[in-house]
């Protein structure tokens, strides 16, 4: 599993499902792996750089209520109730109190063990 992950890979969900938590943490873009209930299982280093939140703080917490309340709305969090999800959109996250423009990709499938929240600072439409 040496292929470099790319934010817009067509088969990214399939690739991510084969990654260990340690590999997920090394992704070249912001990446959060959650259980299907929304609990953080792996928190990428790039994600920490974007949000200022450490892996140690994030692990084991409900992502949308405890870590990223800014995404806890119908545009983002509610979409994970769908059985299948692969959507990209422009959004804003906060680094401490500063707004940070990002491109998000939301991923899950009926067969995936996890659901994923991806953040890219470089490819804002």
């Amino acid at each position: 599993m040496n292929r470099t992950l790319s934010f817009s890979d067509q088969d990214l969900l399939e690739l991510l499902e084969q990654q260990t938590n340690e590999q997920v943490e090394e992704a070249p873009f912001g990446l959060v792996r959650m259980s299907r209930e929304g609990v953080v299982v792996a928190y990428g280093k790039s994600e920490s750089h974007i949000t200022g939140i450490t892996k140690e703080y994030a692990l084991g917490k409900y992502y949308f209520t405890q870590i990223a309340p800014c995404a806890n709305n119908r545009m983002i969090a509610a979409k994970y109730a769908q059985p299948s999800l692969d959507e990209e959109l422009d959004y804003i996250l906060t680094y401490i109190c500063e707004p940070v423009k990002v491109r998000l990709r939301l991923l899950k499938s009926p067969a995936s063990r996890y659901q994923y929240f991806l953040v890219d600072r470089k490819s804002i439409a």
């Binding site: 309340p69 800014c70 995404a71 545009m75 996250l93 707004p99």
Partner: peptide, 15 residues
């Protein structure tokens, strides 16, 4: 133009 905002502001504003 926004200089600072909290997560709740993002949550309500983005939709």
């Amino acid at each position: 133009f926004i200089h600072q905002l909290n997560p709740k502001a993002v949550q309500l504003m983005m939709p």
